[in-house]
Amino acid sequence: MATVETSAGVAAPEVRSLRGETWRRLRRNRMAIAGIAIIALVALAAIFADLIATQPTEGFFADQARESPSARHWFGTDQLGLDLFSRVVHGTRISLMVGFSVVASILLVGIVVGGAAGYFGGIADTLLSRLIDVFLGFPFLVGTIILVTALGGGKMAVIVAIAFFSWPGIARLFRGSVISIRGSEYVEAARALGAGHLRMFFRHVLPNSVTPTLVYAFALIPTTIIAEAALSFLGFGIQNPAEPSWGLMIARYRPLIQTEPHLVIFPGMALTMTAMGFILLGDGLRDALDPRLR
């Protein structure tokens, strides 16, 4: 996190040329390309889940329960005779949905709160910064478990709970970026020309300060996906056994790990692969923006 903050000053002055440069560096990073490939694969699986994984993910098929991997069932079947491959493929939707929903909502909240604190300064800044401190003082998983339980579990509760304890990091980072840009000469100049707050913020401050925040937010996607799985694994997140959440699947298949290890290994691998794709690309983006770290 500290490293991203330092890059704020670097990213500010020349936006367009920096983007071109960033993309060029990213393309040269083999790990980032691998990340993009994995994400593309996962995204395609999510979009075309109904075409790729045609076998039912719900129901009960007594005559094909607990089968080992085969040509018909690539990942085998579970206690209900459900095709594990289909369930794992459909699980991509839950992971991506949770990952993107959380990141989109925390970006919105984090930018509004952090932006307001950084842009206006003064009492607003003091109050909002204290609020951010309170949230950051709460260990993440502890807070999310309590909140997700309070909200009654399920997909929406998971999204809200994770977002609730993730936005402060974004807000703090964006606040820092805004403060560093606020005092710059061209912002002063725009102000002297009589630009209003909203126009100032959206035309000048936001575009010049948001990049590190976006990179940081991107890095939260894998964290979020793993957090959803962890909450569901512990029995607090997604609880409806019909939903193919990877974390819930691992929890449900855990008693069979000795005799049918593939039931745990495949959802576990899906989780690891997906998280890895986002981590590789996230690292690549960060390195491309701040090549000193390579």
């Binding site: 690891t272 998280a275 890895m276």
Partner: peptide, 13 residues
Amino acid sequence: IVLVSTPVFVLGL
């Protein structure tokens, strides 16, 4: 990176 991508509970199990 593989280690950090593997959730704690999967690795533990």
